[in-house]
């Protein structure tokens, strides 16, 4: 028979820690190991079914997502005799599937893997459209735009995983958004044959960078005050 030194309650023999405060029970007089059958509860733990619901929902959503492309495919083939416009619907549905359902189906989605996958399917879909419509815009326009968007997202992701301070996160997001706009501006300028300088994106980039600096300063303020107090206390 042991008592918790911290709480003053008597503890049932099979307990290893006090259930109230977590203090380990050490009683030098009682070294016998209690009979496991004498415990008040069995060792079997019933689990809530979480995975099953997730899997069920994924399967249902997959089946639902199959409906629009199949209907479009049938209409297209019946009307035109070949796959023409329905290819866009099929591609877009596949992209939506990768964007939403793949991370949902995984219990703990891997963020970098998801980002890489999303970037890859976006590029693939755009390339397919360009090839299908004989456009020349994939290499000069779609590829750099997609990659710079992915780079901005990757930077934000890295920042959110590494840094906990809210103001630093905000500063990083603002800077990434401003730089992304600049990249878009440059790419479009090059594609349309203008000289590669910043046009409209200056008006986005400048306030973004200034606000980012402001939030960095705000973040330093607490540390700054603490530092002053340390150095100048009387």
């Amino acid at each position: 028979m042991s008592y918790c030194v911290n709480c003053g309650v008597e503890l049932e023999a099979s307990l290893k820690r006090c259930p109230l405060c977590g203090t380990e029970i050490i009683n030098p007089n009682e070294r016998s190991v209690p009979d496991p059958a004498a415990r008040p509860f069995p060792s079997k733990v019933e689990l809530l079914e979480r995975r099953a619901a997730r899997r069920f929902f994924t399967v249902m959503a997959t089946l639902m997502l199959l409906i629009p492309p199949i209907v479009c495919l049938i209409c297209d083939v019946l009307g035109a005799g070949a796959i023409t416009w329905s290819a866009y619907v099929i591609g877009a549905t596949a992209m939506a599937y990768v964007y939403v359902l793949v991370p949902f189906a995984a219990e703990k989605p891997h963020p970098w893997l998801c980002l890489a996958l999303d970037c890859a399917v976006t590029l693939l879909f755009l390339y397919a459209i360009a090839a299908h419509s004989a456009g020349d815009w994939f290499l000069p326009l779609a590829l750099p735009l997609t990659l710079s968007a992915a780079a901005a997202l990757a930077a934000a992701l890295l920042l959110f995983r590494k840094c906990r301070a809210k103001f630093v996160r905000l500063a990083g997001l603002l800077a990434a958004a401003g730089l992304l706009c600049a990249a878009i501006d440059l790419t479009v300028s090059l594609y349309t044959g203008r000289s590669p300088v910043l046009y409209w994106s200056l008006f986005v980039l400048a306030p973004c960078l200034i606000l980012a600096l402001v939030s960095l300063v705000l973040n330093r303020r607490v540390q700054f005050k603490e530092e002053m107090r340390r150095r100048f206390f009387i």
Binding site: C4, C7, G8, V9, E10, L11, E12, L15, K16, R17, C18, P19, L20, C21, G22, P40, F41, V45
Partner: peptide
């Protein structure tokens, strides 16, 4: 967190009521 159990049962002990504790702890 077991704050309530601790607060409640230690209060009873302080009031002079002996308490024996059992639990399903893992």
């Amino acid at each position: 967190e077991s704050d309530l159990e601790r607060e409640f049962f230690t209060r009873l002990v302080k009031l002079g009521v002996p308490v024996q504790i059992e639990s399903n702890q893992r």
